[in-house]
């Protein structure tokens, strides 16, 4: 039903677009230009692209030096090397001085597939959300990736943009509005709120279709910014539906689910359930198998919806 497209290709196209209209954009990578696809930008704007070799720590601090001087920097590598490998460099050189460095991390999550646990970054959202000044964006599809990259260039302060390796269903439209810090309501319903991020936003839509067959009317929210999270939208729909399910391709600790549950418990404590990776490392396999094995599926979201609705009670109309 949905077309599947690559977020990395979208990133590459957005960079080339930016490069052709402004001179202050600089792109860095660490011996992964062909994987993260900054090579498209490099081919067009060779002077503005630096391959730093396999030295991610060095890359992050160089990014800081460029940004401190006036460049708008995109530093891109795999999510595992873009976060845990360089947490201190991001903390000290980039986040503390609030520099305009956009870290675009590809190959995030379990859907990396065959490379297995060493490359399946499932803790990156948690790491990046815990950094003051950092903005954390998880686009749900290729179109949204483009919009995120283009919005990030003039955003004040560092951003972390999380992309997957595999092609993902395009669930937004060209004209779907995108704003950093603003959730998108994909569908409105009165019975339950499903909040997804990244690839799990499409699973939430599928779950909503399933629920509809049972006459359960779900709201579906695509939470593309995890930090700062769109509290207003979370609270509004939690109030309207009284039950919430979150879904993410990330450790259950420290990601979307944790963020939403904080908002709910401090404002409107309704029953909720989090779908995500249950605090374990990944393993090799193909993406679909892995999604299935770790419960990142619409069926699981449907189950969770039943569960929270039961906890909420039926007296509510």
């Amino acid at each position: 039903m949905w077309k599947k497209e690559s977020q990395r290709t979208a990133f590459a196209e957005a960079l080339v677009e930016l490069g052709s209209r402004r001179k202050d954009v600089v792109v860095l990578t660490a011996d992964l230009s062909s994987s993260v696809k900054t090579n498209k930008f490099a081919a067009r704007f060779p002077e503005h692209h630096f391959n730093i070799g396999i030295s991610e720590q060095n890359m992050m601090s160089i990014a800081a030096g460029l940004a401190g001087s006036g460049s708008r920097v995109f530093a891109s590598t795999f999510a595992v090397f873009a976060t845990s490998r360089v947490y201190d460099q991001i903390r000290q050189s980039i986040a503390w001085p609030k520099l305009n460095v956009n870290i675009v991390a590809t190959h995030a999550g379990i859907t990396v597939g065959g490379d297995g646990a060493s490359h399946q970054m499932l803790e990156d959202i948690a790491l990046m959300c815990s950094l003051p000044n950092m903005t954390v964006i998880v686009p749900c599809d290729a179109l949204e990736t483009k919009k995120a990259v283009k919005s990030a260039v003039d955003y004040n302060g560092p951003t972390y943009i999380r992309l997957g390796r595999s092609e993902v269903p395009t669930i937004t439209k060209e004209k779907t509005p995108f704003k950093i810090g603003k959730a998108t309501v994909m569908k409105k319903g009165k019975d339950i709120t499903l909040i997804g991020t990244g690839i799990m936003a499409s699973q939430c839509l599928l779950a909503a279709d399933e629920l509809e067959k049972e006459k359960i009317d779900a709201t579906v929210i695509n939470m593309s910014t995890i930090k700062p999270v769109d509290k207003k939208t979370v609270i509004k729909y939690a109030k309207e539906t009284g039950a919430v399910v979150t879904a993410e391709e990330h450790n259950i600790i420290g990601g979307l689910g944790s963020t939403v549950s904080s908002v709910l418990s401090e404002n409107i404590p309704v029953p909720m359930k989090r779908i995500g990776i249950p605090d374990i490392f990944g393993e090799s396999g193909n993406s679909e198998e892995l999604m299935e094995k770790y419960g990142l599926t619409s069926e699981n979201i449907v189950k969770a919806a039943h569960d929270v609705m039961k906890r909420r009670g039926v007296e509510r109309t």
Binding site: F50, Q57, S61, G65, L66, G68, Q92, S93
Partner: peptide
């Protein structure tokens, strides 16, 4: 010109400033 304190990072930051120039 740079926020420092965690040793080992300032040289890379300097390279960034130098590439900018």
């Amino acid at each position: 010109e740079a926020s420092t304190g965690s040793e080992g990072q300032g040289l890379s930051i300097g390279i960034g400033a130098s590439l900018y120039a």
